[in-house]
Simulated scan of single mutants.
Amino acid sequence: MILVTGGAGFIGSHTCAALSEQGLPYVVLDNFCNSKPSVLERLARITGQRLTLIEGDVRDGALVSRVLREHGITAVIHFAGLKAVGESVADPLKYYDTNVAGTVTLLSAMRAAGVRTMVFSSSATVYGDPVGSPIREDAALQPTNPYGHSKLMAEQLMADLDRSEPGQWRLARLRYFNPVGAHASGLIGEDPQDVPNNLMPYVAQVAAGTRKELSVFGGDYATADGTGVRDYIHVSDLAEGHVAALRYLQDHAGLLTVNLGTGEPVSVLQMVKAFERASGVPVPYRIVDRRPGDVAAYWADPDTAARLLGWKTSRNVDQMCADVWRWQNGEARRL
């Protein structure tokens, strides 16, 4: 049985769907600080299965220990955490408490229970402002904000644990680039609680008429069209990467670190045009000043994941946009 912390969130819920597709049983632990309980009802419709939910916080060591024991957990996929860069700058203690202390509590409970397999949701923000792209896993680690630092600290914790108890742990650190998209069913997708922090949900809301226009931060970068370039990965491809990592750990002890991205750079304006094609409606935008801390371009070198996990992305930008538009217009997201 697999424990999925934060399993009701955007990436967590899609990974639960991917686990179900592979016939892998799981339970979800979530405190719903960034998600809604109705997501699990939609997941049940997608999978045709009744889901087991434990509502609670990953920082509650007694609860985590009880879940590990009572549900016969053999592996953990750890998503539970906070993810807004701006909020992390404004309230760093909140991010270190949730993202770092929460991981300490989880790993401590796992060690006590004899559960030594974990796939961790990390981020390309650990690279900070890269010297160049594509970015390999051995690139310099120099995060520029508390969110990135919290992910790197959790990564370092895993490395130190593996070093202190060699051969006893099976740990994967998955560094995501820019997750977008939605489940092909239109039943689950990214559902920001407030103003979206990421490009795709904001574009979708502009296309739907919920917001007036998109602010494009910076039009004078040294890129083909002057706007920032990123590596956008479909959330379902990302979810399948977690399943691939989990299967890899079944046969390999130690510490695995891989990028999960497409390796294909896409600019903000290219993504806007792709969304206009998918939706059939214009997306008005306005070029505004750059945001402090934003970098011109970064994208992944995904070769390690392909070589070790046998995994690569299969969904392109047009499919990402089409799936988001289906989700944006669906009734399920308003439940």
Rank of each mutant, 00 (worst) to 15 (best):
L171D: 03
Q250D: 14
A75T: 04
V235W: 09
L82R: 14
R291A: 09
A140N: 02
N329S: 12
L249C: 06
H78F: 08
E165G: 04
H78R: 07
V229S: 04
D294A: 12
I11V: 15
T210F: 05
K312D: 06
V180G: 15
G148V: 02
A300G: 10
H71Y: 13
L174H: 11
G310Y: 07
V100P: 01
Q156A: 13
F217R: 06
G23V: 03
Y221L: 02
D60T: 07
V229R: 07
L3K: 03
S108Q: 15
N198K: 14
Y26H: 12
A244D: 10
P192N: 11
K273A: 15
G254E: 08
F32R: 06
L19N: 04
A124F: 13
D225T: 06
G7W: 02
S185E: 11
G186L: 07
P284M: 08
V85L: 08
A154K: 08
G148K: 03
P130L: 01
A184S: 15
A244E: 10
P201G: 01
V268E: 02
L106D: 07
F10R: 06
H71S: 01
L157I: 09
V266Y: 06
A274S: 11
S35P: 05
K212F: 00
I77C: 07
T47H: 11
Y221W: 15
Q205N: 09
D160A: 14
L68P: 07
P143G: 05
R290D: 00
A305F: 10
R315G: 02
V258C: 14
Q193R: 14
K94T: 01
A75E: 12
R334M: 10
R315P: 00
R291N: 06
G12V: 07
A296C: 01
V283L: 13
H14P: 00
E213P: 05
T98E: 04
N99T: 10
A113Q: 11
T74M: 03
F32W: 04
L93R: 15
T52H: 05
D301N: 12
E21S: 14
Q193S: 08
Q193A: 13
E155A: 10
I188A: 06
I11N: 07
W299H: 13
K94Y: 03
L335G: 13
P37D: 01
D294W: 02
P302G: 05
T47C: 10
R42L: 10
R69D: 14
G280D: 09
A139H: 15
T223G: 00
Y176H: 13
P130S: 04
A182D: 00
V85C: 09
K212T: 15
P143F: 02
R175K: 11
Q22G: 00
G132N: 08
I11A: 12
G72W: 00
R163W: 09
S38W: 12
A75P: 12
I11E: 11
S164D: 14
F32G: 04
V258I: 11
E213M: 08
A80W: 08
S88H: 03
V58S: 13
E41Q: 14
G330W: 02
Y202M: 15
G293D: 00
Q205M: 15
Y232W: 15
V180F: 11
Y248T: 09
E155P: 00
L19W: 06
V58E: 01
V180H: 09
T223H: 03
A332M: 07
L269G: 04
D318K: 09
I77G: 10
G189C: 12
E55W: 08
G228P: 06
S122F: 10
T103D: 05
